[in-house]
Amino acid sequence: MALFEPTILLQLLIAGLLTGSLYALLASGLNLVFGVMRVINIAHAEFMLLGAYLAWVLYVYANVHPLLSLFIVVPAVFGIGWVLERTLIEHVVGRPLLTSLLATYGVSIIMVNAGLLVFASDFKSVPQLQGAIVIGELAISKPRLVAGVLAVILTFAVYLFLEITRLGKAVRAVAEHPHVATICGIDVQRIRMLTFALAVAMAAAAGVMLTMIYSFSPDTGADFIQKCFAIIIIGGMGNFLGAFYGGVLLGVVEAFVGGFGTTQWAEAVAYLLLVLVLLIRPTGLKGMADVK
């Protein structure tokens, strides 16, 4: 088999990078929430699906192209996240990890079942932006290319926000020492609302783009959240960039394992990678040593 041809290797690499950047967009939000609030949001992937379903509804009932609906869906989910943080998540911040796990697990169950009630368990998808760009021997999926590039742009934009802006610095300050941040005049609760809203909005953006790549149903989230957990542990718990690297790494490794081994191994590779990284670097690629 002519697997080692440069075009095939390049093809695998591109596929991996594109899938990986979508993982990265999803996982870095999850990790941001964990970093700032020490809350693992089990419902994170459900917010991705919320974004996907909103985009689907907009497409089916108002004929809005998913790329346009990003501008509606992302702010809407941001708002939902803002309110949910204030009304529910805020009450479990600072409690033992199990409490917040249970709370977000509850949110996840409610969202999945609401999804089943409203949309049934049928698989939805939006047939837009289909096909591929063909360059010689190379074929690059259009929806994946757009999704991958947008995912990188969005993740990078959030990263710049965290690094450069005053508000972003405040978010990082809260992540490191919430008590100290509060005596620096930072309204920690507002920062947490912002963080949570931002993270679920990122997930929703990933979901909107997912509609053009994959068929989803209300319980599709489970597959994604498992990968996200692996990614944030690989990348380092609580580290925004770590999750980004972890996501891209996983995407590429999956593609190559799928190419040289089987797609089934590719599914398991997240966990093998996890064990491997933890053996070499117990705190993950960019781990925080101080997280218990």
Binding site: R166, K169, A170, R172, A173, E176, H177, V180, A181, C184, I186, M288, D290
Partner: peptide, 12 residues
């Protein structure tokens, strides 16, 4: 804030 630079520590 250990992961913020000195300057950032002040600016926040």
């Amino acid at each position: 804030f250990p992961q913020l630079t000195v300057l950032e520590n002040l600016i926040v």
